[in-house]
Design a protein around this nucleic acid. Structure first.
Lengths: 364, 364
DNA sequence: ATGAAAGCGCTAACAG
DNA sequence: CTGTTAGCGCTTTCAT
């Protein structure tokens, strides 16, 4: 903390000069003194406001240069009441799905002169709340949240106090707010229907934990497609849980070796798809499973290089998700009123081979 | 009524009440009034400072709840002189290399109670400077920069004023500062040597624009390995430039069709590798190039699914890069002095098949 | 244990 | 055109 820094260390001189909280950075007052003008004149120059003669401006600029002055936005913010920053709480910036989403938000923010503060919740509701509230304490103008938890009432006072808030990728819990989602239900239904259209009747679904909204929706889409086709869903064909590779691997193997082995798999998100591909296409894929025929696969979320691996996917547009949410946020910040808006973005099925593998003969 | 409704909250609009800059959020003063205590007591409670009786604390807490008060950190920051935030200027958060790097920085910052503000320079030096200085104006405690430009003297006044600064992935230009790099030279040399060890004599290098430090270093490593082996470098075997797929594709094709076609390629970064793989392994890979034998490939930077595609790579550890830089930053913030530090992290060659393809018979 | 007063560095609102 | 005076909401200092 600040108190661990001894005065003698702080600025290289051990004099009795009172330590200023901001080190000893020059302030507008210092610039004014040096330029022999009033404080407000410096402010005018720094902010490019009119009403300063060219000569005065030059003298002020010189003083700014000489002193190495840079405006302290903390003070400006306090006075103006706007931070020109927005917050984004997401699951994990290292996930290839959220990186592009965040970047899209950043671009919109930049177009509006705002900076973006990211925070990773690591899928932990407590951490989500902690982060969101920390951002509110810093008085971000707006907040975009990819929920980890299911109760966002903690944000009610903030929203009421004027923090524009948009939820993305998953809906808010127990409060009504602007929301931008991908069509998880429709996408999963289409992906499953695609497999059915290619002759499959025993199809498995491996998804994330069911309390995650997108996971639940995708499961619902899968079931809907099966029902549409009049197909039963075997007891061991559905597996929801953490997306850790070990669990997914075991889940996929179990589906392939049960009494009614599946001939195709719908993977519930990018991480699951990756592991599924490893299991299904790995060197020892068929070993120990008794399979001899390749298993069809449709993954939710697109992947880099998926085209080269021939993986059929139901793709969502992470960038569009971020852009749409950010645009809605700034619309609110620009004064747009009205009821909370709910946008659903379509998904796109991209056939690349793995989803078009037919079932083994004699399975229909 | 004055105790339940904030003075100017009652005014729906248009009343004579002066608009306060922060909307009409309650302040500590409001809480104090409602709880019937002094301002400082509220501050003590909010910050968990000692010297408040249990009963007083309870009354303050009630007032906080009732009013929906949340401390305004902007004001706190102004007074304390520390923002508890660090800035990270990188190229593109959507790039799978920088996402994990950023996340690693975030984790270290979090451990030190600081938030992270990211900014994407889009590889534009002007934008890098604009972002870095905007972060300085917000008085981030520290700054981590992945340079886009080559002249960082613009940061000198800031660094002198006390902004701890660490450069990552590429060195600073024209100033001396803490730096954390990957061993691009050594990695490229090892990757090239690997291809040579597998019998190749005509090896191409496709990299990013030469003004990017890592690109230049990797080229140097490539040349060093060739020289070590006493091999010449054909005039058409080296191609540096933007990593746009079209350019990379053309560059690779040119190397494969020249008078002295290469039998192996070293790809200079993750984007180049992806395109190179598409060209070399794509459905029409051999068509039009006159090739019949597969071309060996070693990529710089690891990729998701590279194992499944059998792509041999020279991997850097993006997370370690971010973590190391952040740790150095906080070491400085905790008062560590001394000369600027320069750390180089080793790379790792991961053989997966594409780099072990031998040259066609009769090429040696 | 509690509170009054004095700023942090800047901008808004008025003077001159 | 320019400068002076009040704050923004909080922490610090120093009384009580």
């Amino acid at each position: 903390m600040a108190d661990t820094v001894h005065p003698s260390l702080a600025s290289g001189r051990g004099s009795g000069a009172p330590e200023r909280p901001w080190g000893n950075r020059p302030t507008m007052k210092d610039v004014a003194a040096r330029a022999g003008v009033g404080l407000k004149t410096v402010s005018r120059v720094v902010n490019g406001e009119p009403g300063v003669t060219a000569d005065t401006e030059r003298r002020v600029q010189e003083a700014i240069e000489a002193l190495g002055f840079r405006r302290n936005d903390s003070a400006r913010v306090l006075r103006k009441g706007r931070t020109a920053s927005v917050g984004l709480v997401l699951e994990d910036l290292a996930d290839p799905f959220y990186g592009p989403l965040s970047r899209a938000v950043e671009e919109v923010a930049r177009a509006h002169g705002a900076l973006l503060i990211n925070g990773s919740s690591a899928e932990d509701p407590e951490r989500e709340q902690e982060l969101a509230l920390a951002l509110c304490a810093r008085r971000v103008d707006g907040l975009i949240v990819i929920p980890a938890g299911h109760d966002h009432r903690y944000l009610e006072p903030e929203i009421r106090a004027g923090v524009a808030t948009v939820f993305v990728d998953r809906p808010a819990g127990l409060i009504d707010a602007d929301t931008v989602l991908s069509d998880s239900f429709g996408g999963a239904r289409a992906g499953t229907a695609h497999l059915i259209a290619h002759g499959h009747r025993r199809i498995g679904f491996v998804g994330d934990r069911p309390r995650i909204h997108t996971a639940a929706e995708r499961l619902r889409g899968y079931r809907a497609a099966m029902a549409d086709a009049g197909l039963p869903v075997g007891p061991s064909w559905v597996s929801l849980g953490p997306t850790a590779p070990e669990r997914v691997r075991d889940a996929v193997r179990a589906m392939l070796t049960g009494p009614e082995p599946v001939t195709a798999v719908l993977a519930g998100n990018n991480r699951v798809t990756v592991t599924a591909v490893r299991v299904l296409a790995g060197p020892r894929a068929a070993a120990g499973t008794g399979r001899e025929h390749p298993v069809a696969l449709v993954g939710f979320d697109d992947l880099d290089l998926a085209d080269l691996l021939g993986i059929t996917v139901v793709a969502q547009d992470a960038r569009a998700l971020g852009r749409t949410a950010a645009e809605q946020l700034f619309r609110r910040l620009d004064g747009a009123g009205g009821e909370p808006v709910r946008v659903t973005l379509a998904t796109e099925l991209i056939p690349r081979g793995s989803g078009e593998i037919p079932p083994p003969a004699g399975t229909a």
